[in-house]
Design a protein around this nucleic acid. Structure first.
Lengths: 268, 268
DNA sequence: CGATGGTTTGACGCTACTCAACATAAGTGG
DNA sequence: CCACTTATGTTGAGTAGCGTCAAACCATCG
């Protein structure tokens, strides 16, 4: 039977004084000055739409690592865009076994499912310090009505999160431990790359091995041994909380996972 | 390493002359007479919206069991609503290992992700004879513009499919074989129940054990042994291609899965 | 009938899990 | 500054759940 995971995680990792990414939490400029959007790594948006989004944004929120942003039991339909930092969605069984469903990176839209709640629930927890743009809970329909293109973008984001879930399900269901680790490293790197988080060929990597295990459906011990093996093969390096891929071709081959640049997605 | 699955599946199961469901393929009435919608098991819709949907519907399609409705490699953005019958979405690794991502029941909206293609691909295959409403490929944005409420519904459907994926990922990642089978049986029954497919306390069950294995990330042999065990415990019965749950409480307990009625979702 | 697809069962082996212990780094309070 | 604690990573030993291989059984079909 799979591992039970710890109930709490501590800030330790994310407080290392390294190349800062989530450490210096960005404040919240008006949407027109949004650093994320200005990176040019998202699909374009009109000024009208931008103004609407600004108006739709209801509040901002900053939270330290380990914060539960959405409780697994709650059914409040909070809506966020992750502006900076890392988080993850998860579900747990009643005996504590935890499955991480997917990791959330800047630009990801959070909480859409709760909004249409089915009773089904998931939790969201911050991995690093995070900054969130919080939207009006009941305004989603208004957004669709006022600016259909934005509604379209919301759907687009939902669809691309579904793609990630598809991949993760394939991984958990049909890949062995080595393939799983390779897939995860590659996938996270690709996703970070898309939103411009690569600095000096490396990305921040705030996961501990328990997170990796819970994301891949493996036990902590086996995850460790598998990661150690890939490390020994010189395929990647994690130092100072940052991940560098030393042989993407090999990882891509092991994972049987395409290593191409991901297309831009919208930013709400 | 997980099982390789068969490349092809044949109609065998679905052609049994039993209580007909997908056998007598429904023809396509105008949307106003849609049998599915008239079942009252979907969220309400206005006449204006209904007219638009009718217009948005571009063609109909009927396909026999085993038909590949969407090829895993294609990136054409076909859009369908499954009107009658069962299908499933899947991904395969290059050596043939297959993961079924989720099963599709009447009312499910198909093809949304391809529409926003990321390079990521999945296939869709008919389990039974299926009837599909095919929509205009490039008209999705028009739909959002013309009737935002319909766009909202599309998003809603995407979100509820995401919920199913979340559950399936939890299952594949953290449940053992017995729990997985129990979860699948219960989940399919609940979903079938929601759209009114229960007749005499049983639903059509067109999956063979290879499908179950591929959905749960198990090998065929182990799936068989596990199903046999649950059968021996008198928890369910499959006869003549129909599934009956004999002890939902027990299944729900084993699966650690809530056994409540699912809420209605929209129908496009 | 033989052919085919699906189900079932037994034997065996390996991957991944469990248990347990130890190492390391960082933080805390005295 | 040190003893103590906590989080995380590492390694070894033993085991079991699940995969693989192989063969048989059964039903349907041409």
């Amino acid at each position: 039977m799979p591992t039970k995971s710890e109930k709490k995680s501590l800030p330790a990792l994310s407080e290392r004084p390294n190349l800062a990414t989530a450490e210096d939490v960005p404040r919240f400029p008006p949407c027109a000055d949004c650093a994320l959007r200005k990176s040019g790594r998202f699909t374009p948006i009109t000024v009208t739409e931008l103004a609407f989004v600004q108006d739709f944004r209801h509040a901002n929120r900053v939270a330290p690592p380990g914060t539960v942003l959405i409780r697994e039991t709650s059914s409040e339909g909070k809506l966020y865009t992750l502006y900076a930092g890392w988080a993850f969605r998860y579900k747990t069984l009643s005996d504590g076994r935890r499955q991480i469903l997917n990791f959330l990176l800047p630009g990801d839209f959070i909480g859409l499912q709760q909004h249409f709640n089915d009773g089904a629930a998931y939790g969201v927890e911050a991995l690093t310090s995070v900054s969130l743009c919080a939207f009006q809970q009941n305004g989603l329909m208004d957004l669709f009505k006022a600016l259909p293109a934005l509604g379209f973008d919301v759907t687009w984001l939902a669809a691309s999160q579904k793609n990630v879930l598809d991949e993760n399900l394939l991984t958990a269901g049909r890949r062995n431990a080595t393939e799983r680790v390779a897939t995860l490293l590659l996938q996270l790197f690709q996703r970070a790359e898309r939103v411009g988080l690569v600095v000096d060929g490396a990305i921040e990597f705030p996961l501990n091995q328990q997170h990796v295990a819970d994301a891949l459906g493996l036990s902590l011990v086996h995850t460790n041994k598998t990661m150690r093996r890939l490390l020994g093969l010189g395929l990647y390096r994690i130092e100072g909380g940052r991940l560098e891929l030393l042989d993407r071709k090999a990882l891509s081959r092991i994972a049987d996972h395409d290593d191409g640049a991901l297309r831009p997605v919208p930013l709400i």
